[in-house]
Amino acid sequence: MAPNSRKIIICGLGGQGVIFLTRLLARAAVDSGHPVMVSETHGMSQRGGSVISHLKIGGNQAPLIQPGTADALLSLDPDEAVRNLHYLSPGAAAFVNAHSEPPPDIRPHLERLDIRLHCLPANRIALELGNVAVANVVLAGFASRHPALGLSSDDLRRALHTNAKRNLELNLKALERGVGGSRE
């Protein structure tokens, strides 16, 4: 596998901005010179249901990621994170918008598979910034500190200038707060 290739799962609930977050990461990857292929959830499942995007950076043109092979997972909802953990490969990382730790039964499996779970209360941070809708960007900033994402905070900042023109200042603040993170 090419060193620059990445497979990333982005999930959450309809209305949380999973598609915005996916397109932000895709834009950042393309601006860094990598081809992308993404699969999004549209239609009926968007009405408040589980939403999942598959993002492939680096040339793989199959739209879906095979379970057990993803490098990273970003989830805007803790339950949706657990639902999709089986997508991760051993040694991968998950970034979850959550106050609390995952169900205790999961922990030994994650340790066995060397999957690292990083939690951040992104909703709370976004509310402090005045709009819960930017929790997705907070989470993106948080994940950019980790090499599993393969995208730096600078990459994301540049992509925000393209993808979030209407509310740029708030989104940039959200990104910085995410990069700042907490309890690591």
Binding site: P67, V82, H86, D105, H109
Partner: peptide
């Protein structure tokens, strides 16, 4: 077997 971890999948 497919690459996903069977035990973790079952638990989920």
């Amino acid at each position: 077997p497919p690459p996903r971890d069977a035990q973790l999948s079952e638990l989920i």
